[in-house]
């Protein structure tokens, strides 16, 4: 009962369609909601690949936390329609877009050309993971043993980013207050 390929095309199709909607939508909030669907389709694809933990974390973190923040920002700034002046940066944007598209095509070409040789499967085949107690266990064991240093460093990096953003946001407020005090 292999039903995965059908579902893969459904999820892949949805993610491509809604990725396009993210950039083509005029309303910022509609873009954000399209991005939500994209995250969901990605989670679906991860789940089809038996990576249930990655799928759950994708939904929990990206869809459940980060995107909520995006939407908060959009709602608070009230950017209803595109406030960006398209005419001013048209040439520069065009040049950047052309470079980006060219780079993308180049990368895809490289990937597919070297993809003629069969890929070597790693040690973590679905059977091995099943035998070791499911992928939540395997992944967390790796995360807290072999990769504990990069993992902790990432969290420090995120903490630094949070403190940085708070400092930047508070700077104006503090200066204003000290001026008022004078």
């Amino acid at each position: 009962m292999n039903i995965s390929p059908g579902f893969f095309y459904v999820f892949a199709g949805t993610s491509i369609l809604f990725s396009l909607l993210v950039i083509l939508n005029r309303s910022a909030i509609a873009s954000a909601f399209s991005l939500l669907v994209v995250f969901f389709s990605f989670a679906g694809i991860y789940a089809l690949l038996d990576a249930h933990l990655v799928a759950a974390l994708q939904v929990l973190i990206y869809a459940g936390a980060i995107l909520v923040l995006f939407i908060f920002v959009i709602m608070l700034l009230n950017v209803e329609q595109a406030s960006f002046d398209y005419k001013r940066g048209r040439i520069l944007t065009g040049v950047f877009a052309a470079f980006g598209a060219f780079g993308m095509v180049f990368l895809l070409g490289r990937v597919f050309r070297s993809g003629s040789a069969p890929l070597q499967p790693g040690p973590f085949s679905p059977e091995n993971i099943q035998a070791a107690g499911g992928n939540t266990r395997v992944l967390s064991e790796l995360l807290f043993s072999e990769y504990v240093l990069p993992f902790e460093l990432t969290s420090v990096l995120l903490l630094a980013a949070i403190i940085g953003s708070v400092v930047l946001a508070k700077r104006g407020v503090i200066e204003k207050k000290s001026k008022e005090a004078k």
Binding site: H52, L53, A55, A56, V59, L60, A63, G64, T136
Partner: peptide
């Protein structure tokens, strides 16, 4: 699922979009 209740938290965190 072997992600257990992480699945519940993941899906439940989406309810907030309805409110927004």
């Amino acid at each position: 699922l072997n992600v257990g209740f992480l699945y519940i938290f993941a899906i439940a965190s989406l309810g907030v979009y309805g409110l927004i």
